[in-house]
Design a protein around this nucleic acid. Structure first.
Lengths: 323, 323
DNA sequence: CTGTTAGCGCTTTCAA
DNA sequence: TTGAAAGCGCTAACAG
């Protein structure tokens, strides 16, 4: 039999007579033949690989997104090639180039930079979905959450509990999540008629160590805040660490709301009140958007904005186990 | 100029005259040319992709390993294609096939099954390193930790603190980690002259929900244990969850030691005593082993056994913040 | 229905 | 020192 016939059988073509088809299948079985995707890709001028670039694969936020992405693509026999940019625009560019040279079918990425002017040609002809952050000056689909509303809700929750001095641990100011969450905080402060106080805003760079240092600075203020909003999960952990080190009581002496839930947020000391993001759903929707774009490359770029949710736990309320 | 010349320039061949070389480089720059890895791979009959199959990409144990793997390969311009087996041998087989058909240069995987008899031909001619667990009946390199010693040390620690009724939350009995950790527990029990009590051993399947259920069963025993060893990190979280729900005090009413550390283990309620595994190092060493095998495919299979470390925190000691 | 053939982009002889 | 040409494994167009 010819290679063409084998190819047809594997493609499920109905142009092959049944008994030959079976003979082909038998041989495949007997020889343990696995089709070479490289030859196929070269011929078809496309692969079954989806590129995914995240800024921190160790952050459960992104692993949960990854899971959502994989669950969708697995059914489509597409595999996911993951790369880490570590929030470094240069590293991101390198990884994008590598993935593109692998001939990825499509690309999902969490932008490590704000502005992609001059990068248009890099993405030329490629199906791309941005997640978590909105990239400027490239025309791609995106899936994000309403970060302004989320941070505002976090801050408002503390205001509702009677707090008047509320600290904020900011993320990276050069990406939209960092900017929008700060904006949400400021809006809530302003609407409540509280004065803006720059000393109450400390940078944490979206890192645990950053959150730790920022929290220390807040604690060491002449008049420390009675409550804090931390604008991502790793910084929340760092903040809690700093608070524990000083043996300060949460929420009695200081209350804290984190941005982004974690599977173990309930087991932290104390269980953490958070703004939860629909992480799995972000990944799933991004993957679906990509699949739609494969079908119809010409549709205009879409932007999906998902909602966040305030989950109140003991870090801003009484612990039910305490009597 | 010919494609051959371009290829030579990119390969750094010194057979190209300097001024032509510069002209090639200029054109590459001007056209934004990125070499097509697919054509290259087809010609070279190998890729620059490393396959990595883990059993749970959401478990920080594996993301830390992944980071170790990536850090090594990044310098070698090798990319990592990650797949999830979800502890499912069938899914594992599928993913191995997919990765192999992508023409991966080498393979690192955490075995989802115990015995790989009959799989020899699948790995034929492929450089493979097993991590975390030791696969039976295939001759591949592996990097594991001393699970028996680790579980024994965990149990011994509790015995040293005076505990006589020590529960054990077991993992999956069909992989070596599950078996060895149980073995270590039993050895410690035996050496201390404590009776073996099957009711004190509950299965948790390496899942958070499993740890939760197992812990509930232990709590509900007529005579509950005064201490528990949980044989992986997710089950530890589940166990802590179950304990909290009953408002039982750790470590006063029940002490707990987990297997495998987590970046946030110190911030849990209470901070968790654990047997830490050198996760990053497991990934790094596995990657290095693979690189060595690329260089020298004929060397006999090596098995690296790394050490675990007991980290004592408040779940088996007094909390320093309590007076 | 099935086989023959061209060519995807690259690297590596071989020839000049 | 450079170019021409073959061929990696596959699929799709074409021929039979």
């Amino acid at each position: 039999m010819s290679t063409a016939t084998v190819s047809r059988v594997l493609a499920g073509s109905d142009l092959v007579r049944e008994n030959l088809r079976l003979r082909v299948l038998d041989s495949i079985e007997a020889l343990g033949y696995i089709p070479n995707q490289i030859g196929r890709s070269l011929r078809r001028q496309t692969t079954n690989i989806i590129g995914l670039v995240v800024t921190d694969i160790q952050n459960p936020f992104f692993t949960s997104i990854l899971r959502g992405v994989q669950d969708v693509f697995q059914e489509q026999e597409l595999v996911v090639l993951t790369a880490n940019s570590d929030e470094n625009p240069k590293k991101e560019f390198l990884h994008l180039q590598i993935l593109l040279s692998q001939g990825v079918r499509g690309l999902i990425f969490a932008p490590a930079r704000l502005d992609y002017q001059g990068f248009e040609h890099l993405f030329k002809g490629m199906s791309v979905v941005a997640i978590d952050r909105t990239p400027l000056n490239i025309n791609v689909d995106s899936v994000v959450v309403d970060n302004v509303a989320g941070a505002k809700a976090a801050t408002q929750h503390l205001i509702d509990l009677g707090h008047r001095r509320i600290g904020f641990i900011a993320g990276i100011s050069t990406v939209t999540t960092g900017q929008d969450r700060l904006k949400g905080y400021l809006e809530a402060i302003k609407e409540a008629g509280l004065p803006k106080n720059d000393g109450l805003i400390q940078d944490g760079l979206f890192l645990q160590q950053g959150g730790y240092k920022a929290m220390k600075k807040l604690i060491d203020l002449k008049v420390p805040p009675t409550a804090v909003v931390s604008s991502n999960n790793l910084m929340s952990l760092g903040a809690v660490q700093a608070i524990h080190e000083r043996c300060i009581k949460i929420p009695d002496e200081i209350a804290i709301v984190g941005f982004d839930d974690m599977p173990w947020a309930s087991f932290l000391q104390p269980p953490l009140t958070v703004i939860a993001q629909p992480t799995y759903e972000i990944g799933r929707r991004a993957a679906l958007l990509l699949l739609e774009r494969f079908e119809n490359p010409e549709i205009p770029a879409r932007k999906l904005v998902l909602e966040t949710k305030l989950i109140i736990r003991a870090s801003t309320a009484l612990n039910p186990c305490v009597n």
